[in-house]
């Protein structure tokens, strides 16, 4: 087990190095670079000025030199300068991370408080009209484009309340912040909650068929005791692992939501940075996300080994 963890840890490092190469190469395969973008706002491209600009930004160096500069800098805590704002990359990225993190946590909170209880109810009331209604609801949650839902929410707010729940300036109090983030978080969380509800339901159903549940029932334990203390506590494990993974993947859903609600988080920032070909921002942000995802996967894998003795690791 110990050696497995050590091995797994090294594999994780290899993955991250591979990731850095892939994202680095991929970005340079995308046609156009920052010099083209900067000239765009001037309405023309001047070849000699463009060459000077590429020289200044180090884009004319050989590709392996550029890669090494990035890795070397990263190991020394120097993430370089954003091409667009000409400020340190870390100053551009760091203030945006907490915003997206808060949004993600809140979205996760919504999806869990909605998804788990509804999933349990659906499983307990299996094949009743309630079950069917909840399943259709959860499926529609997975079927609505999240930006569409967000747009409908915005329009409804303006129409009925005359205000718009978008980000225009940083919130002053914790309460304001909660209010500001809760609507976009609910819009994203709706989709995740559908996923969690479905998982909870199937996981519950599986556990309820197990022998020990039947035994508990045979011993005369009440329905609610069986459902909530025995079944749920066992069914929740796979759900938790999925929530862990889902957390890292929420960022995909957050891209469009941050766009519609105008929230200055990292998710939208990454899209803009790709469009601007702002390599230092994209590279470092993607690596940051990758580290989170890879570490989460690592922990989930460890959990699997601990939980499922059927899986053999040579």
């Amino acid at each position: 087990m110990g050696s497995y963890i050590v091995r797994r840890f090294f594999l994780m490092l290899i993955t991250l190095i591979g990731m850095s190469i892939v994202i680095f190469a991929l970005l340079r395969l995308v046609p156009g670079n920052i010099a083209d973008i900067l000239f765009d706002s001037a309405g023309f491209v001047d070849p000699s000025e463009k060459a000077a600009l590429e020289e200044e930004l180090g884009l004319s160096d050989p590709i392996y030199v550029q890669y090494w500069d990035w890795i070397w800098g990263m190991m020394h805590g120097d993430l370089g300068y954003s091409y667009v704002s000409e400020r340190p990359t870390i100053d551009e990225i760091a203030p945006r991370i907490p915003i997206t993190a808060k949004l993600a946590v809140l979205a996760l909170f919504f999806s869990v408080v909605m998804g788990v209880p509804l999933g349990v109810i659906s499983a307990v009331k299996q094949n009743t009209p309630i079950d069917y209604a909840l399943r259709v609801l959860s499926l529609s949650g997975l079927s609505l484009p999240s930006f569409w839902l967000a747009l409908l929410i915005l329009m409804a707010f303006v129409h009925w309340f005359g205000t718009i729940p978008i980000y225009t300036s940083p919130p002053d109090t914790l309460w304001d912040e909660l209010l500001l983030y809760s609507i976009p978080a609910a819009a994203v969380g709706f989709r995740s909650s559908a996923l969690i509800m479905r998982l909870t339901r199937s996981s519950m159903l599986e556990v309820m068929r197990q022998d020990y549940i039947r035994t508990a029932r045979a011993k005369g334990a009440s329905d609610s005791t069986v459902n909530y203390s025995h079944a749920l506590s066992n069914a929740i494990l796979p759900v938790i692992t999925i929530i862990g993974i889902e957390a890292a993947f929420l960022i995909g859903g957050l891209i469009v939501t941050e766009t519609v609600f105008n929230i200055p988080g990292v998710a939208r920032f990454i899209v803009e940075a790709i469009q601007w070909r702002d390599y230092p921002i994209v590279q470092n942000l993607v690596m940051f996300i990758a580290v989170i995802v890879v570490v989460t996967n690592f922990l989930v894998d460890l959990l699997y080994v601990a939980l499922d003795p059927r899986i053999k690791y040579e």
Binding site: L154, V158, I166, N262
Partner: peptide, 20 residues
């Protein structure tokens, strides 16, 4: 003078309507 950057045109027009 405070300038707020809003890329989505539908969002920013809604915000103007809402007197932001």
């Amino acid at each position: 003078i405070d300038w707020t950057i809003i890329k989505s045109r539908s969002t920013r027009i809604l915000a103007f309507i809402a007197d932001e």
